[in-house]
């Protein structure tokens, strides 16, 4: 399959601290990859580098064969990178429906004239976006809550809504930043099914940052392990599980 995301020797320094060092990370189309590592290993920083929030100090990132250097997050989103956040960042004053609708508008923003005249093309695009957003919400069973404020949903549903919102941008690559944080075992089980479902149904690549070993091992095809900003291992879940370096750096401490 074709490579989708290619990170080559990506490094970023904040002042004197090297948060990510010479990271090589490759994701092919429709792959489900996990990125794990102990606290402070640089996972979220790697996310922010891929999504354009930070620019690397050295190294290169390409998405779909084109470099992402100097490209702003909103343009990367239009190219097909979407994400969720570790500390859920829904649009707080919007309804569930508007959260999704807003993410959908990306490159389809109306012209001022159309918005003011409210003519035929304006009403048609509004109707189409509305239809598409409702369809998407239906798939995830959130359509009944569509008029509720996004922030009023139960915690698990907020996480789900954030994934739906990310999907509304029609991504080729979806980055999930610790989606299982704060969930109980049942919710985690449901989340795993949800991620698998998203991966299959939408045919997209998924990069999952996660703390919870069970979740990562259970669904990822390939896993990259970071420690102190460096990649220390890469392989299938089985390989990772038996890699002595990983055990020393991470599993040994966490799972005993």
């Amino acid at each position: 399959m074709n490579p989708l995301l290619e990170c080559e020797k990506v490094t970023i320094k904040f002042g004197g601290v090297t948060a990510v060092s010479e990271l090589d990370l490759h994701i092919r189309e429709h792959e489900l990859v996990g990125l794990i590592g102990p606290n402070g290993a640089g996972k979220t920083t790697a996310f922010n580098l891929i999504t354009g929030v930070y620019q690397p100090t050295a190294g290169s990132i390409a998405f779909g064969g084109r470099t992402t250097a100097g490209v702003k997050p909103e343009l990367l989103s239009l190219r097909g990178i979407s994400r969720t956040f570790q500390n859920i960042r829904l649009f707080a004053s919007m309804t569930v429906f508007d959260n999704v609708r807003t993410a959908m508008q990306g490159n389809r923003a109306q012209r001022v004239r159309d918005a003011l005249l409210r003519g035929k093309s304006f009403r048609e695009t509004e109707a189409r976006v509305k239809h598409e957003a409702m369809e998407l919400l239906k798939i995830f069973g959130l359509d009944e809550a569509c008029d509720a404020p996004g922030k009023s949903l139960p915690y698990g549903d907020q996480r789900r809504l954030e994934i739906v919102r990310a999907l509304a941008t029609q991504p080729k690559l979806l980055l999930l930043d610790e989606p299982a944080a704060g969930m109980n075992p049942t919710e985690k089980q449901q989340l795993m099914e949800l991620i698998r479902f998203v991966h299959d149904k939408f045919g997209i690549a998924v990069l999952l940052v996660e703390h919870d070993m069970k979740v990562v091992m259970g669904i990822c095809q390939r896993i990259t392990v970071l420690d102190y900003g460096r990649k220390i291992a890469e392989g299938t879940p089985v390989e990772i599980r038996s890699d002595p370096k990983v055990i020393a750096a991470y599993l040994g401490k966490e799972e005993g």
């Binding site: 979407s82 990306g106 918005a115 941008t169």
Partner: peptide, 26 residues
Amino acid sequence: CLVNSTYGRGFIAVHDDEIAASAMGI
């Protein structure tokens, strides 16, 4: 009219969370 269009949702997205907005292509 502006507020009830893609503009308005863009405005409110900026108001609510700029980082999330730009990650969603706004």
